[in-house]
Computed example of a mutant assay.
Amino acid sequence: MSLNYKIHTQAWPLAKEFRISRGAKTQADVVVLMLTDGKHTAWAESVPYARYGETLASVVAQIEHIMPSVHSELTGGELLTIMPAGAARNVIDCALWDLKAKQAQTNVHTLLSLALKTELNTAQTLSLDAPDKMAKAAGELKTNPLIKIKLDADDILGKMQQIHHSAPNSQFIIDANEAWNIDILTDILPKLVPLNVALIEQPLPSEQDELLTGFKPAIPLCADESCHVAADLKHLQNKFQAVNIKLDKTGGLTEAVNLMQQAKQRGFIIMTGCMVGTSLAMAPAYLIGAYSSFVDLDGPLLLANDRADGFSFNRGCMSSASATLWGRADNKQMMEHLHLI
């Protein structure tokens, strides 16, 4: 059955500037795809990522190019064979899963034989900033069990000491976004152990992964920019202990499930992550979160406002979104959610 579709780009202002080692942003630029078979209407959201050469325009062009080949009977596995991983495939794959659930009058987690948790503990992310400002922000989250810290290579230990002092009972994920080198990593690891650092994401540039071969870190290292799809796992073995699964990297929920299952079989720690987007982008990733040791789906918390019927957050506890948002019931309020139609 052929499908009609609409593509929209949206800019969601952030509550405040969000800075990482590669730069800063003040809004989340997202792509929304709506599909209809004439009876059911489905949708999804993805976030183009400049790190991989993606822009709003390039992702929209990819979607436009492939949509003549997309029909309601197309499976996620078939989509993997006609599109590369990335934000364009993600939004199509997740919209198709939403549509299939509505056509079958069921839900996506049932179609995929996945568990659905009503609550997940998620990290809340601190933007890169001056040490005193990061410490103050950490203090405001001191009751959260898990806080994610964006760092560059400048004054790593000093910042983490102040942050730990402000939130002594929290665990921390450090995300360096490829900003460190092997000497920094080797020197800093043992110093971070007493500061409740539980995981370090992508300390080195992805092209330097080989430097981690056989490296025995005191804190698990998590592949983020180095891990996109299940085929990457062979390369990551014996270098990283964990992988960060993001749907905009895997190119959708179909490959995210495959990556999660194969990573577990290989003994990797699973982390579920996100780009900065609305609850609509978090909804498919939430299903992977049920199988993850670390969850980082706080994208909506970074926004000035989220979509209606989105996730709720309370001291690091993330409650499942309304059934009207994605993947479970007919989205009768979708027009109101989208605002632009």
Results as ranks from 00 to 15, higher is better:
Val193Phe: 08
Met318Gly: 02
Phe18Ser: 02
Leu35Phe: 02
Ser127Gly: 01
Ala44Pro: 05
Ala104Lys: 13
Ala101Gly: 01
His235Glu: 08
Thr254Leu: 04
Tyr49Asp: 13
Asn196Gly: 07
Gln171Met: 08
Leu126Trp: 03
Lys159Cys: 11
Thr41Arg: 15
Asp187Ala: 14
Gly327Met: 02
Ile173Cys: 07
Leu259Ile: 05
Ile149Met: 08
Phe313Arg: 07
Trp43Asn: 01
Ala104His: 12
Ala88Lys: 04
Ala95Pro: 03
Met335Asp: 11
Gln333Ala: 13
Met67Gln: 04
Pro13Met: 10
Lys100Gly: 06
Phe215Pro: 00
Arg328Pro: 00
Phe215Arg: 03
Leu259Arg: 01
His164Ser: 10
Ala137Tyr: 03
Glu119Ile: 07
Cys222Lys: 04
Ala15Leu: 15
Ser170Met: 07
Gln62Thr: 04
Gly316Glu: 03
Ser312Gly: 06
Glu54Lys: 09
Glu225His: 08
Thr106Trp: 03
Asp330Lys: 13
Thr9Ile: 09
Ile63Ser: 01
Leu56Glu: 06
Glu45Gly: 00
Met282Arg: 03
Thr110Phe: 11
Ser113Lys: 10
Asp37Met: 00
Leu212Gly: 00
Thr118Arg: 14
Ile174Pro: 10
Tyr49Asn: 13
Met34Glu: 15
Ser46Gln: 02
Leu112Cys: 11
Ala24Trp: 14
Ala218Ile: 06
Asn181Pro: 08
Ser226Val: 10
Ala283Glu: 02
Leu114Pro: 12
Trp180Val: 06
Asn314Phe: 14
Pro190Cys: 11
Gly251Asp: 04
Thr26Gly: 05
Val193Arg: 11
Gln202Pro: 07
Ser69Lys: 15
Leu195Ile: 10
Ala61Phe: 07
Glu119Ser: 12
Ala115Gln: 15
Asp306Trp: 11
Lys102Gly: 02
Cys274Ile: 01
Ala176Leu: 05
Ser69Met: 13
Val31Asp: 00
Arg19Cys: 14
Ala85Leu: 06
Tyr49Ser: 11
Ile269Asn: 05
Ser322Pro: 03
Ser166Met: 12
Ile7Phe: 05
Leu114Gln: 12
Gln10Trp: 09
Thr110Arg: 09
Asn169Met: 08
Ser58Glu: 06
Asn258Phe: 10
Phe313Pro: 02
Lys136His: 15
Leu80His: 07
Ser58Ile: 11
Ile63His: 01
Gly38Glu: 02
Cys227Ala: 15
Ile288Thr: 05
Asn90Thr: 11
Met275Pro: 03
Val30Leu: 09
Ile174Ala: 09
His164Arg: 10
Asn196Ala: 08
Val108Leu: 01
Cys274Tyr: 01
Ala281His: 10
Leu325Tyr: 06
Ser69Val: 03
Asn144Thr: 10
Ala24Gln: 12
Leu120Tyr: 01
Leu280Cys: 02
Lys249Cys: 06
Pro48His: 04
Met271Lys: 11
Leu14Ala: 05
Leu111Met: 05
Leu120Thr: 02
Ala323Thr: 13
Lys102Met: 08
Asp37Asn: 13
His165Leu: 14
Glu17Ile: 14
Ser206Arg: 15
Pro205Ile: 05
Leu99Gly: 06
Leu141Met: 14
Leu99Thr: 04
Trp180Asn: 04
Thr75Gly: 11
Thr278Gln: 03
